[in-house]
Write a protein that binds this DNA or RNA. Structure first.
Length: 421
RNA sequence: GCGUCGGUGGCGGAGUGGUCAAUCGCACGAGACUGUAAAUCUCGCGGACAAUGUCCUACGAAGGUUCAAAUCCUUCCCGGCGCA
């Protein structure tokens, strides 16, 4: 048993088909799974205070390595006592224990968002067609090109060793390798963190998906090695390996087997899918992941996608959508998302969602938020973000209850029927 | 009353003889957003159509000059400023 195994334990409490409910224990507190992990990229969940997050039911938050490395720098956060303490998420409990589990993403997603996706409309969930090899090649750039940023308009360039980033903040040049990502994540000090991977775009052709996936496998091994080498100083931290493979089932299976063969504490499923291929790709991967370790569905998702993930055996979910669409005026409701900036809500004085009351936002109406958004009052984005995070957490909490009561399939079917009606 | 500057789409404000239904901003209407480059971005915003285009009606009002006027001229109306 390695030291990091002590830092993290996972026990499955109940199953409903492939879905499972479990208990994930970190040195900073327990997490009942399945769980939604609010995203606080830059050590802050946009618009929501830590105490409010707790009231909403959040058990753990996720921050980002690339962003915190650039600003304020991992040294500052290390000096502050680690991510949880730095951001005020860590809280002393009555018995003097620290509470406030955290995770960090490795920066692998920024390989995508600042690389292939930069300046384009593509997102990790595919809308477009897969590119031909030739089309993809024309987009590809080499790190040896002289002026990456101005020549190609993207801020991240990949090579087999790592990724060169041009800072989106000041244009300065930075280099991430698996070893560097792990070093930074050790300094950030989250309870759980991810191996450095390459998140590919959904339109990349099969050949490139395979190439990137195998690179991610090599990086996974290097990430793990880098973590083990520094284990003495980081015994409280646990590392998750990331499965890639795009939308292709054979690649997902290959990736899952490869990553599962490494001694990770948990697993993440990352990368891109098309909406239609998500289920198949996930199934192809999950069946090769060990039962007894936690599984995180990176960057997912929307309510329906989360329930799909839970049904297929995923335990953790993080997604920016709840806060982002909330900040932009859209809230989740049991009957589907609604855009509160629409004219029709000006005089709608019903609750945000009459069927899902979220702690701290119960007294607000759609008409009030409509006004706040129109008046550009910061309370609008704040309340909507809180509502959405609370909504998702209640959805996931409900799923957990349903798994424990063995009514999950009905729960999921009921939700889908109403939400997508 | 005299002089002077000005009156353009819901508002502000470009344009100052043809390429103008009229740059731009705001407001308004709608859409997007899935490991956050995002309190952001996109589209629409006179009217009617056989609508990737065509035709009407528009730049205070009415006349006029011109092949052609939001743009030049005349008168009138309204507003700011200055002098009485």
């Amino acid at each position: 048993m390695s030291n990091s195994d002590k830092a993290l334990s996972f026990a499955i409490k109940a199953r409903a088909g492939t879905a499972r409910a479990g208990l994930l224990r970190t040195l900073h507190g327990d997490i009942q799974t399945p769980a939604f992990v609010p995203v606080g990229t830059k050590a802050g969940v946009k618009g929501i205070l830590p105490e409010q997050l707790r009231a909403l039911g959040a058990q753990v938050v996720l921050a980002n390595t690339y962003h915190l490395y650039l600003q304020p720098g991992e040294k500052i956060i290390e000096e502050a006592g680690g991510l949880a303490k730095f951001m005020g998420w860590e809280k002393m409990t009555e018995d003097g224990a620290k509470h406030g589990p955290t995770m960090t993403d490795s920066g692998g997603f920024q390989v995508f968002s600042l690389g292939a996706a930069f300046g384009r409309t593509i997102t990790k969930i595919a809308k477009g067609e897969e590119l031909t090899n030739e089309q993809a090649e024309n987009r590809r750039v080499s790190v040896y090109d002289e002026d990456v940023q101005t020549k190609h308009g993207q801020l991240a360039v990949i090579d087999d060793e790592g990724v060169t980033f041009t800072s989106h903040l000041d244009g300065s040049l930075h280099r991430f390798t698996p070893e560097r990502s792990i070093e930074i994540q050790h300094a950030l000090g989250a309870d759980m963190f991810f191996a450095f991977d390459e998140c590919t775009g959904p339109t990349e052709p099969y050949e490139y998906q395979k190439e990137a996936m195998r690179r991610t496998h090599r990086w996974a091994l290097r990430s793990l090695k880098a973590h083990r080498q520094n284990l003495a100083a980081n015994r409280a931290q646990s590392i998750f390996g990331i499965v890639q493979g795009g939308r292709h089932e054979d690649l997902r299976s290959e990736s899952a087997q490869e990553i599962a063969s490494m001694d990770f504490d948990g697993f993440g499923i990352g990368g891109s899918f098309s909406k239609e291929d998500m289920h198949g790709a996930l199934e192809a991967a999950v069946k090769y992941l060990p039962e007894e370790k936690p599984r995180h569905f990176l960057g997912i998702g929307e309510p329906g996608d989360i329930l799909t993930g839970i049904a297929q055996g995923m335990d953790l979910f993080d997604c920016v959508a709840a806060t982002r669409i909330g900040r932009h005026g859209t809230i989740y409701t049991k009957r589907g998302p609604i855009n509160l900036t629409n004219e029709k809500f000006k005089n709608d004085f019903t609750p945000l969602d009459p069927e899902v009351l979220v702690p701290g936002t119960e007294s607000f109406t759609r008409g009030y938020l409509s006004h706040l958004f129109r008046a550009k009052e910061m309370l609008g984005p704040i309340i909507a973000s809180m509502h959405n995070v609370g909504f998702i957490i209640q959805l996931v909490d409900g799923a957990r209850e349903a798994i424990l009561n063995d009514t999950f399939e009905q729960y999921r079917a009921d939700f889908m029927r109403d939400y997508y009606a």
